[in-house]
């Protein structure tokens, strides 16, 4: 006994039964939490699909996706969601056109040229930008961007796709900047040194070696920026004017998928056809963002493997 005891302790790594039990509980908790995330994601998809069934059966996929008339409360209701889909794509495209060049330039500056102190400060600011509630961005947009767009283009109303896109571009900046910056940072400095040692300036090195080497990560950053922009609701609801008609220019009022769901869901009959059509719109959004995030993840994983980081 006296001599069996230390052996047992040694074999169990010095842990008591209570500690072992605590460890089992902790491991179990972590495992369950991990699975919960996956189950919740699957449940959302199933729930969206389940509630979409009625609309898909009574209206049909085709008329919802390509129909251009959205009059859900008329009799009978018209559920052509194409203006909403186009509205979302239009506002997102404007946001991208504005935020990708600026975001990429900022990332390059921070990663390749900024001093350490500037970099730290900028990172803090960018994190803070990401933390500001979208309704605050909406307020600033209403106060500044909408009047500006109105007066610059001489419009009757500044509530346009352009106004929404501008604010959305600013909102997507933190995502684009921080993920591009990570991608540039992950490029081994040995490549930069090789280029410098071949008589290239830092700028030549950046655009000839570093940016191409980080291109997959930069692509992922843009994708995640798209995901951020397309899913944004509150700011676009406040800024785009919400007319559910097919836009012809960026200076017209548009209504996005997210804005439609947020605006109409409170007024529909639970389980009704309109209710179900809104779930179809939600399903489209879910599919689009899921695909975008998956693509970004695959690309990032590829980059990670390449540099073994």
């Amino acid at each position: 006994m006296t001599h069996g005891r230390p052996l047992t302790v040694a074999r169990s790594n010095g842990r008591t039964a209570i500690r072992r039990a605590a460890e089992a509980v902790a491991t179990g908790f972590i495992r369950v939490s991990g699975w919960t995330a996956i189950v919740v994601l699957a449940a959302i998809a199933v729930f969206l699909a389940w509630n979409s069934v009625r609309a898909l059966r009574e209206v049909g996929v085709g008329p919802i996706m390509v129909g251009t008339e959205w009059y859900p409360t008329s009799h009978p209701g018209k559920f052509g969601a194409a203006p909403l889909i186009v509205g979302s794509l239009l506002v997102t495209s404007i946001a991208l056109v504005l935020c990708v060049p600026v975001g990429l330039a900022a990332a390059v500056f921070l990663s390749e040229f900024a001093t350490r102190r500037i970099k730290e400060a900028a990172k803090a600011v960018i994190e803070f930008m990401a933390a500001i509630p979208s309704v605050v961005y909406g307020l600033v947009g209403v106060a500044l961007v909408v009047p500006a767009v109105k007066s610059v283009f001489g419009l009757d109303s500044g509530l346009t796709a352009l106004s929404g896109g501008i604010v959305l571009g600013i909102m997507a900046l933190p995502t684009v900047v921080s993920i591009s910056e990570d991608a540039l940072h992950a490029v081994p400095s040995s490549l930069r040194h090789a280029s410098l040692a071949l008589g290239n300036t830092r700028w030549q090195t950046t655009y000839k070696v570093t940016i191409p080497a980080a291109s997959s990560g930069i692509f992922a950053a843009v994708m995640l920026g798209v995901g951020r922009a397309i899913g944004e609701t509150m700011a676009v609801l406040m800024l785009t004017g919400n007319a559910a008609v097919m836009p012809r220019t960026v200076l017209e009022s548009v209504r996005t998928m997210t804005g439609t769901i947020a605006a109409e869901m409170g007024e529909v009959v639970q389980g009704g056809l309109h209710y179900s059509v809104l779930f179809v719109v939600g399903l489209v959004l879910f599919a689009v963002t899921f695909a975008i995030n998956l693509a970004a993840d695959v690309v990032l994983e590829k980059q990670r493997k390449r540099w073994g980081a």
Binding site: P188, S190, L191, A194, A197, L198, G199, P212
Partner: peptide, 20 residues
């Protein structure tokens, strides 16, 4: 230094070819 490095090349400790 950029001109100098055209005249004085360097090979590094670990192979560092560009990804091209």
């Amino acid at each position: 230094p950029v001109d100098l490095r055209m005249r004085v090349g360097q090979v590094f400790q670990r192979p560092n070819p560009f990804p091209m």
